[in-house]
Amino acid sequence: MTQPASYVDQPRDPRPTDRVVTVLLLIALIVLAPAAGFMGLLTAMATDSCGSGNDCNEGLVATGVFTSAASPIVVALVALVWVVVRWRRGRTTWWVPLVAALVAAGTWWIGALITFGAVGW
């Protein structure tokens, strides 16, 4: 026996623990994302060895620093919007900040590797 279509379209009510865990993880993500962005700006210090006979690709350095500085903040904002959308639809949301943290860390490392590769490490 199948349920009427209106039953399928109704939003589900996630458990309160899902909401609490989501809020706590989002707070942690929103606090840590700017810190990671600041640490991304510090990857520019890899260019200290440039100029003393070591050729550096300045455009690639800028790309790497921008990627490692901006990506954690952008990922955190996208995760916040995604959580709100899923929350409004009655879906579970606890895993979204965790995935966002992994994606932010990965993109931060990609930016740092670009910067270090442009310097010639």
Rank of each mutant, 00 (worst) to 15 (best):
T2K: 13
T2W: 15
Q3V: 15
Y7N: 12
V8C: 06
D9I: 11
P11E: 05
R12I: 07
R12F: 10
D13Q: 14
D13L: 13
P14G: 09
R15K: 14
P16T: 04
T17N: 00
D18N: 14
R19L: 15
V20S: 09
V21N: 05
L25I: 00
I27M: 10
I27K: 04
V31Y: 07
A33W: 05
A33Q: 10
P34R: 01
M39C: 02
L41P: 00
L42F: 03
A44E: 07
A44L: 11
D48W: 09
S49L: 13
G51V: 06
S52P: 01
G53S: 07
N54Y: 05
N54Q: 13
N54C: 00
D55W: 13
C56G: 02
A62V: 13
A62Q: 11
V65Q: 06
F66Q: 11
T67P: 01
S68A: 15
S68K: 02
S71K: 06
I73Y: 08
I73G: 06
I73M: 13
V74S: 00
V74P: 05
V75C: 06
V75L: 08
L77S: 04
V84N: 01
V84E: 01
V84G: 02
V85G: 01
R86L: 14
R86E: 11
G90Y: 09
R91W: 08
T92N: 12
T93S: 11
W94C: 07
P97R: 06
P97L: 12
L98V: 15
V99G: 06
V99F: 11
A100I: 05
A101N: 09
A101V: 12
V103E: 04
A104N: 10
A104P: 03
A105Q: 01
G106T: 03
W108E: 00
W109E: 09
W109M: 06
I110D: 00
I110T: 08
G120D: 05
W121A: 12
W121Y: 14
